[in-house]
Every structure is written in structure tokens, then in C-alpha cells.
Amino acid sequence: MKWVEICIHTSQQAVDPVSNILYEAGSSGVVIEDPEVLTREWTDQYGEIYDLSPSDYPETGVYVKGYLPETVFLPDTVEQIREAVDHLVEYEIDVQPNQIYVGEVKEEDWATAWKKYYKPVRVTDSLVISPTWEEVDKSNPNEVLIELDPGMAFGTGTHPTTVLCLRALEGIVKTGDTVLDVGTGSGVLSIAAAKWGASRVLALDLDDVAVRSARENVELNQVESRVEVRQNNLVQSIQGQYDVIVANILAEIVLKLIDDATQLMKPNGFLVLSGIIKKKQEVVEQALLKAGLTINEVLVEEDWVAIIAQK
């Protein structure tokens, strides 16, 4: 079978929604080539560090690459991808340079070469995320390990917005807590909450691909007895009260969620919101205060913020 690489040259801000567009178009995984990694300080505590070539990365912006089988429907699919990316500007997401390149790739090259992009990463003081094929030291009882298969879809849990959520959850999830994860994606936040002691986690996502991916990852990490993954539109028709609610989604969607989420929070419960670009921070904070919540902490990573609010 011949495969085609769809490369979208876009902004850092648009990486998550553009990746999701490629998943919905049928790509089983994406590669993100961000020149930021060329200046990042790497640790060799986990995995092997590869020499990175600047020629593989854009001078500005980010390459987001997806892979689709070459079929007669491919031109229509590419056009649908283009229209979906253009549509992101309606959510005030900067998609520039917004250029799409299409090229052929040999299946045998893609089958193994993409794995070099994924190595174990320490995300917080106690949390390591690793692809399933890597050997990781599991002897430290104080260290939490989450294993993901990046080929399943919805990333590896190391995007800045996800990292912010994980750092926030590490500080607030207690043994026995109930957690609601809205827009779960890969399920990594739910898995982490369960491994940090949550007694029950409900993970929600509207996208059926995300639901399947999250369920597979939950089973892979052996927390299916405490994590339920359900297809759902935000928190519509959800009942009960939760100690912690977390949502790593776009600010525009966050604003629609806050009032309903507040009703589902226990007294003194926490609401963790991420996926918020800095220029949207103030409007989200105002909505939280209007809902009667207290803003406890704001975490910042690159151009993204996560807000921890309490009832």
C-alpha cells in the first residue's frame, strides 16, 4: 500500500487542533516537528538522545504531519483538511503560515522510523510517560509510570497544555478522590489521576476515536477498574459530585463548560482548566470568578496557561 504524508505548516498554538483534524481525517498518528526542540535541554536519564538536524524543522512555526493511504478519495480528503484548518480562525486560533504539503512515503519507512520521535519523558517530579516499546526502570516505588502507544492517536501526553494539567493534578489529587476528565483525548490525565490515588475517574470525549484510544490506554496501564471512558458532549447529562474536574480543551469551549462544571464540584473541590492561550487568560479568569470560584494558582508553559480554581 502507498501512503501519503500530509504536512501542515502552522503555529505552535494550532498544534493540538490541527493534530485532531488529521486524526479525524483518518491518520492513525501524527509527527510534530517543532524547532523548539533544537534548543531544549535534554536529559539522558531515560532513553537514547538522537542528534537532531535543523534541516528537518521549519525556521518558524511547526510542521504537523499525518499519514493517509493513497486512494481515489485523497484529493477530497486533503481539501476537507484544508477547510477544517481554515475554520480554526473562527476560534481565534492563529494557523499561520497555514501551508499544506502532500508527498508520498514508503510504508516500510513509516512503519518503524516514526518511533525515534518517542522516548520516555519525565513530565513531573514523580511521573514518567513512556512509549510501550521502551525499557524503563520500574523499581522506584515513588515514581508513577504511564505507558502509551503513540500510534493509537491523540499524542504522547507531553504537549505543554497536557503537562500543565499533569503538574496541577499531581498537587491536588488525593487518595480516594473522584475525578471528572472532560475532553480526555488519550486518557493520560485520567490514568495519572488513578495512579495518584483517585478511587473513581470518569473520562469523557465527544470523538469516538479518542474514546477508543483512551480505553486502550486505560487497559494498557491496568487502571480500568477505576477509570470509565464514555462518549459524551462536555458534561451534558452527567450526574454526581466530584472532588476534581479537569478539562484540557480550547478556551472557547472552556467558557461554555464553567457553569455546568461548577454545579458538579463538591464543596472545596477543584477545577483545573488548560488549553488556554495567554491572551484568553483574563476572560477565562473573569468567567471563573463570576461562577463563584476562587482562583488558587495559574501555571504557565510557553504561550499556554492552566488555571486551578476552587469552589
Score class of each variant (00 low, 15 high):
Ser11Gln: 10
Asp16Ile: 15
Asp16Trp: 08
Val30Gln: 09
Ile32Lys: 05
Glu36Asn: 07
Trp42Thr: 06
Gly47Leu: 06
Tyr63Arg: 07
Tyr63Ala: 03
Tyr67Val: 04
Val72Gln: 07
Leu74Glu: 12
Ile81Phe: 14
Asn98Pro: 08
Tyr101Trp: 07
Val102Arg: 02
Gly103Thr: 15
Gly103Glu: 14
Val105Tyr: 04
Glu108His: 12
Thr112Phe: 10
Ala113Arg: 12
Trp114Ser: 08
Lys115Gly: 06
Lys116Trp: 07
Lys116Arg: 14
Lys119Leu: 04
Thr124Met: 00
Glu134Leu: 00
Glu143Asn: 06
Val144Cys: 07
Leu148Cys: 02
Met152Asn: 04
Thr158Gln: 06
Pro160Met: 06
Thr161Arg: 00
Gly171Pro: 01
Val173Gly: 00
Gly176Ile: 05
Asp177Pro: 00
Asp181Ile: 03
Gly187Met: 03
Leu189Ser: 00
Trp196Tyr: 13
Trp196Gly: 02
Asp205Ala: 09
Asp207Phe: 08
Asp207Asn: 10
Val211Asp: 10
Asn217His: 15
Glu224Asn: 15
Gln231Cys: 06
Asn233Val: 11
Ser237Trp: 11
Gly240Thr: 11
Val246Met: 03
Ala247Glu: 04
Asn248Arg: 14
Asn248Leu: 14
Leu250Thr: 14
Leu250Pro: 04
Glu252Gly: 12
Lys256Gly: 15
Leu257Phe: 15
Met265Arg: 04
Pro267Lys: 07
Ser274Lys: 12
Ile277Gln: 05
Lys278Cys: 09
Gln286Lys: 15
Leu293Arg: 03
Thr294Cys: 09
Thr294Ser: 11
Asn296Ser: 13
Glu301Leu: 12
Asp303Pro: 06
Asp303Gln: 08
Val305Gly: 03
